[in-house]
Nucleic acid binder design. Structure first.
Lengths: 235, 235
DNA sequence: CGGTACGTTGAGTCATATCAACCATAGTGG
DNA sequence: CCACTATGGTTGATATGACTCAACGTACCG
């Protein structure tokens, strides 16, 4: 794609009118973001920011999918969450004024707006509604994290894999043929579940022979959601 | 203790002057809390609030220790964190206006102030500095949760137990004889580490014969912190 | 065409969970 | 005061889920 073909999205008709955290910003505040933001494009595998670094702003996803992960002792990635259009990442480090405690890498080619730190901190101070919105977001993430902890600590790999598939269905949806819209490597799946790549492979083919799913390359077709729910022990 | 012997703490000389979240509240705001708060006392084992319930306020710990946990599929508790004097709990549910996603139970006899929800939401809207402070708190907790996820997913039980001991040292300290100030049942330890009670028992006695710790009942004496650090793979 | 990254399968091992029995302690009630 | 019960702690035996290691297949890419 040639440079001049790139369309930089305007914030007014981008995430604002949706139910994003930005919905309670004033027109002026939106304009400020629109003026100060930096539009960036990334391809699969590229890194937005890395654990341990100080970052001077946060990212708002416009297109694509990003994985947010921590690197464990032996270099193994633990995927904490995914970010998709409308989501913001790295805001935690900005708000707590700490170095990034995670890294972010592109899963699916992405367009992203980089927004300088001061905007977030300024608006939080100026706009109580926005502040509440950000607070709700962090609290929500905290709730999910707690859930995650309990699951990893108590469930088997089999249960967790089923649960992860269900989460992916919820977050990214299925296409018209019931294929999961997000496609991940087996290693990435393993890094969400918290297990070895080989274990994911074995369990997936077990699910396949049990007729819960079908596999074609990285694409996963969901055949029997009910059974997956039963396996995963979620309600 | 007779009712009249109970001393209700005044907020001005309680947590405020410390580095609690309340440090940026105005004198007036402190007075409001002081007026509206409800002082409560609990004994070991009592429940402050339970998962799934809506709660009409949050708790500020004045004395004692509280465990915050989630109940897993088979009824097993997963301890998420501890709260000690100066800490606040249940504020997450208040801010996100969701039912509690955890339960809280007393580990060590506790005095607690119950503060109605509206105070938290009001002050967050009125006082940007306080708002920032709460935000930093949630962000900090989120960072810890992410760390926790990675550890449980990637480390062995042995590594995790060593790490938990180190965290307990950091959070609750040692007495003059190097005994851990917090005392937990083996089951509680297991519910932090995310393992079976028997495994904790075996590993503790392994640590004991390796001369890293000494045991007398629930009291754990720390002999060799360096080795525990080495085992746990933390830096 | 060789190289690199990903996927798959099998075999063997080990850490950890599970199950069961038993002991210690403290609180309870007759 | 003593049996009774509940709770927590310990130990051993056994089972097994999941990891590791290794080999090999596959696909894509320059």
């Amino acid at each position: 794609m040639k440079q001049k073909d790139i369309k930089i999205p305007f914030c007014d008709n981008c995430a604002v009118n949706t139910n994003s955290v930005f919905r309670h910003l004033s027109k002026d505040q939106i304009d400020i973001i629109n003026f100060e933001k930096e539009f960036r494009q990334y391809r699969r595998g590229e890194v937005l920011y890395a654990e341990g670094n100080r970052i001077s702003g946060f990212f708002c996803i416009n297109k694509g999918i990003i994985k947010v992960f921590k690197t464990g002792f032996d270099g193994k990635e633990q995927i904490i969450r995914f970010a998709k259009p409308g989501d913001i990442i790295a805001y935690r480090s900005v708000l707590s004024n700490e170095p990034a405690c995670t890294s972010a890498k592109v899963i699916e080619d992405a367009s992203v707006c980089f927004i300088p730190s001061h905007i977030l901190t300024d608006f939080v101070k100026e706009n109580p509604l926005f502040s509440m919105e950000v607070m709700k977001l962090t609290c929500h993430e905290l709730g999910i994290a707690n859930e995650y902890i309990t699951d990893i600590a108590q469930k088997t790999v089999r249960e967790r894999l089923a649960e992860v598939l269900l989460h992916l269905i919820n977050d990214f949806g299925l296409d018209s043929e019931n294929y999961l819209k997000i496609s991940l490597t087996r290693e990435e799946l393993a890094n969400i579940v918290g297990t070895a790549t080989e274990s994911v492979i074995r369990l997936l083919s077990e699910f396949k022979s049990d007729r819960y799913i079908e596999l074609s390359g990285r694409k996963i077709k969901i055949l029997d959601r009910k059974s997956l729910e039963k396996i995963s022990n979620v309600f």
